[in-house]
């Protein structure tokens, strides 16, 4: 039986046969995408254009066009503020997460004693960063830089700054460890790219008289540029999907609020999604031209 199978398909051409099998393997995913992602996404967008009321029999829709969107952007006193805060916090966190994961990856790529011990520590956060855990730790003040955030001089200094400057700094001080904790997977990604760089390039460079400092900037960093874009995108997406994210919490609370409702929260979800895409696009634009120059 099995022997004849490949030949039976010869009639329709090898290429078509290959395509059919390929579709066969991804078939489940395509159905899943339509049912669990695409249709709900379109439906959520449809909700966002309606006033949605949940009744005993089902849901009641009343078309309101773009009212939900204008309400979120113009009337709602909290949403835009939270959104701006989210953008600033993300823009502060991403470079820190990137730089730290790069430094740690560079360290872990070296050979030294107790490497396994340090590796264990640096990957530990991957395991424990869940919303409620982080929430408890933040509430008890365990995520700020030990001792720094509570120092009198610093709070004094912050109060002299305008709020658009002091807020990000304060965020940085109180959530520094959190940002580091979100860098576990990024360290892994950097490490794997570091290990892919051809060792002979470094040897050739050092024969030509390049110092390790020079070869870091001229060889290591340029070869990591794609990885950096991936890591930046990963960081932004993880931070934006994190269940303790203030915008997400606000949208969630509005879903069940009398004043809000499904329609309104759907509109906010799409605005949030749009901002997330914008952030990703900006990151991509900022990080990719540098690659062109260095190469």
């Amino acid at each position: 039986m099995t022997e004849r199978k490949p030949f039976r398909f010869r009639g329709i051409g090898l290429r078509t046969r290959e395509s059919l099998y390929g579709y066969g393997f991804v078939f489940l995913w395509i159905i899943g995408f339509v049912v669990f992602t695409m249709v709900p996404l379109v439906q959520t967008f449809f909700f966002s254009l309606n006033q949605v009321t949940v009744t005993a029999t089902g849901i009641d829709l009343r078309p309101v066009q773009w009212d939900n969107y204008s309400r979120a952007l113009v009337t709602d006193p909290t949403f835009v503020g939270l959104l701006i805060e989210y953008v600033i916090e993300t823009l502060v966190s991403v470079p820190i997460a990137i730089i730290f994961s790069l430094i740690i990856a560079l360290f872990l790529n070296l050979n030294f004693k107790f490497k396994g011990f340090f590796r264990t520590i640096f990957f530990l956060p991957v395991v424990i960063t869940s919303g409620p855990v982080i929430q408890e730790l933040t509430a008890q003040g365990a995520t700020s830089v030990p001792g720094v955030a509570n120092m009198g001089a610093i709070t004094e200094f912050l109060s002299t700054l305008p709020s658009y400057l002091s807020n990000p700094v304060e965020y940085l001080l109180t959530s520094f460890i959190l940002i580091l904790w979100f860098s576990g997977v990024q360290i892994l990604i950097y490490l794997s790219s570091l290990q892919k760089i051809d060792k002979s390039v470094y040897e050739a460079a050092s024969i030509d008289g390049a110092s390790a400092w020079e070869s870091f900037w001229k060889i290591t960093l340029p070869s990591l540029s794609t990885t950096t874009i991936i890591n930046a995108a990963y960081t932004i997406i993880t931070l934006s999907h994190f269940s303790e994210n203030k915008v997400i919490k606000y949208i969630y609370s509005q879903t069940y609020a009398v004043q809000g409702g499904i329609g309104y929260s759907s509109a906010m979800s799409f605005l949030y999604f749009f901002v997330l895409l914008l952030l990703l696009a900006v990151t991509f634009l900022v990080l990719s031209p540098r690659r062109e120059q260095r190469r």
Binding site: F36, T37, V39, P40, L41, Q43, T44, F47, I237, S240, H241, I248, I251, Y252, T255, I262, S265, S266, S269, F270, Y272, F273, L276, L277, L280
Partner: peptide, 11 residues
Amino acid sequence: IIPAQNTVIPQ
């Protein structure tokens, strides 16, 4: 990339 809250209610 799509945030969960963009699909969660219909689901």
